[in-house]
Design a binder for these strands. Structure first.
Length: 297
RNA sequence: GGUGCCAUAGCUCAGUCGGUAGAGCAACGGACUGAAAAUCCGUGUGUCCCCGGUUCGAUUCCUGGUGGCACCA
């Protein structure tokens, strides 16, 4: 039987974590997390990392394995997962990947174009340009270095422009010349099952989950990370709202309300991301039997 | 029971000297190639409480209801 990567995806709060452990136990496989914020060892409560009981039941990978101080990306994730997978397939011909980071999942399933690494100083340079001259300064630079990409990129999104610029400058070639737009075929089978819930029910679960995080001590967890708040990894729902509260900009009550709202918005963005992926078979979170049938387990 | 005030978007409210209405928040839709729980873009979603009256035309003015709040009994 061919090696199979089962990808269990869905918006935050839909119930992936518990179900993935059930699936893993049923198939005897291990779990690869595809949650870009559960990677960090400094965060636990606010990123809804699986509880110790679940972690004990099934071996998980890519959970709290690095520091928020380190750089990471979907490309590095692709590389790391592809390196790990052969050893997992040796033990069992199914591996389960679960998480909510669409871009990271796509990196593993479809691959992303090979683009050389960049010098962090170059990104810093363009961040400074953005600060000094605004989006217009970035646009002028891009029009000069990569006129082709200039016509395609979202010209109001500074992160996209800076990304293109740093590649242009680091490689001496236009960013667009690296974009092949082709899908890599893996030597293992990929099956994607999406979990969904009625919007209102999902939102109620999100709101309840945030209240639970508060009870479990999210505020204290965030307070310990306050000094590191400038790091990208901490530009995360559940933490940045508390940072604003600690800084005195908003009330504690307002921070909690915003965490709920921003988590709801995040879940919507996840659903939008997956809406165009036709390889996903969607199931209501209550239809576990149908999912087992679909996965033939 | 009496008097007064109020009733407009999911919520809080503004407004229309009579020509079917708009803010904030919430919500909704979309984009996405190494920062992605990030970043960016777009959208008012409405029996203007109900029945009548006046009027060419009523959410707006008037009568009467209904509901809410306040005060007096």
């Amino acid at each position: 039987m061919k090696n199979t990567l089962i990808v269990l995806l869905g918006p935050t709060g839909v119930g992936k974590t518990d179900f993935s452990v059930e699936l893993a136990e049923k198939t005897g496989s291990e779990i690869i997390s595809a949650d870009s914020r559960q990677f960090y060892m400094e965060m636990r409560i606010g990123t809804a990392v699986p509880g110790d009981d679940l972690l004990k039941r099934v071996k998980h990978h890519f959970i709290r394995f690095m520091s928020v101080r380190e750089y990471y990306s979907s490309s590095i994730y692709e590389r790391d997962v592809l390196r790990l997978l052969p050893s997992l397939f040796e033990k069992n011909n199914t591996v389960i990947m679960t998480g909510g980071s669409g871009m990271y999942i796509d990196a593993v399933c479809n691959g992303i174009d090979d683009i050389p690494d960049t010098d962090p100083a170059v990104r810093e340079k363009y961040n400074k340009l953005y600060e000094a001259e605004g989006i217009e300064g970035l646009r002028i630079a891009l029009k000069m270095l990569d006129p082709d990409h200039y016509t395609k990129v979202d010209l109001r999104n500074h992160k996209r422009i800076i990304r293109a610029l740093e590649i242009c400058e680091s490689t001496g070639l236009p960013y667009s010349s690296f974009l092949q737009n082709r899908k890599t075929v893996r030597d293992f089978t990929i099956i994607k099952a999406g979990l969904r819930r009625e919007r209102q029910q999902l939102y109620e679960r999100i709101n309840t989950r945030v209240d639970m995080m508060i009870e479990e001590g999210l505020e204290e967890e965030a307070s310990k990370l306050f000094d590191l708040r400038h790091l990208n990894a901490l530009n995360t729902v559940g933490y940045r709202e508390f940072f604003d509260y600690f800084a005195g900009t908003i009330s504690r009550e307002k921070a909690i309300e915003l965490i709920k709202r921003n988590t709801r918005r995040y879940s919507k963005r996840q659903m939008t991301w997956w809406s165009r992926d036709e390889s996903i078979q969607w199931f209501d979170a209550s239809e576990k039997e149908k999912i087992y049938d679909y996965l033939r387990i």
